[in-house]
């Protein structure tokens, strides 16, 4: 997906908002299942988290890294400058926002809680509880909320700039 049009700034911010919303959804799921001991796969619920990656085509990266072919170096102020002869084809290509690659399961071991009356307790009276830490989820939630808000601010800034352009 190449965002190269007039509204690409909005789409980049939208991809950021989308990613943070996915983050919020997984956090909600983790908090809702903080004491779930039964899942379809068997065993307790496992914490889920999204994996983000910066969206950009290979060509974008090569464009950013592409060196100018011929470039004069001025080491003395009397030297005449030879500007770069070849700029990257379109230097406006720098990235396309953020992608949610996958939703992963946390591989940390389940918490063992002693509760012999629990129907899922093992023979020693221990229950395997989800590896979800409520405090960790709450901190992640704050981070995701703030990141979402930052994206909204960027979105509104781009929007007002576009509206200014229409006023010319």
């Amino acid at each position: 997906m190449a965002f190269n049009g007039m509204f690409s700034g909005l789409e980049i911010s939208a991809s950021g908002m989308h990613a943070q919303r996915i983050m919020q959804n997984t956090i909600s799921s983790n908090l809702a299942n903080v004491e779930t001991t039964r899942t379809e796969e068997g065993g307790p619920y496992r914490r889920q988290f999204p994996v983000f990656s910066a969206a950009s085509d290979q060509s974008d990266v090569s464009l950013i890294n592409q060196k100018v072919k011929l470039h004069g170096v001025t080491t003395n102020e009397n030297h005449i400058e030879i500007p770069p002869t070849e700029y990257p084809r379109d230097e406006r290509f720098f990235g396309n926002g953020v992608n949610v690659d996958e939703i992963r399961e946390d591989s940390r071991t389940p918490k063992m809680v002693y509760d012999p009356s629990h129907p899922d307790a093992d023979k020693n009276g221990y229950v395997a509880m989800p590896n979800v830490s409520v405090i960790e989820e709450m901190t992640n939630m704050i981070s995701a909320t703030r990141a979402y808000e930052a994206n909204v601010t960027a979105f509104n800034a781009t929007k007002s700039m576009l509206q200014q352009a229409l006023q010319i």
Partner: peptide, 19 residues
């Protein structure tokens, strides 16, 4: 240039949590 810069900033902000 300002529009381009706002897009790069939007991109940086979108990737605030990208490792």
């Amino acid at each position: 240039a300002s529009m381009l810069r706002s897009r790069t900033i939007a991109n940086n902000i979108a990737n605030i949590n990208t490792p």
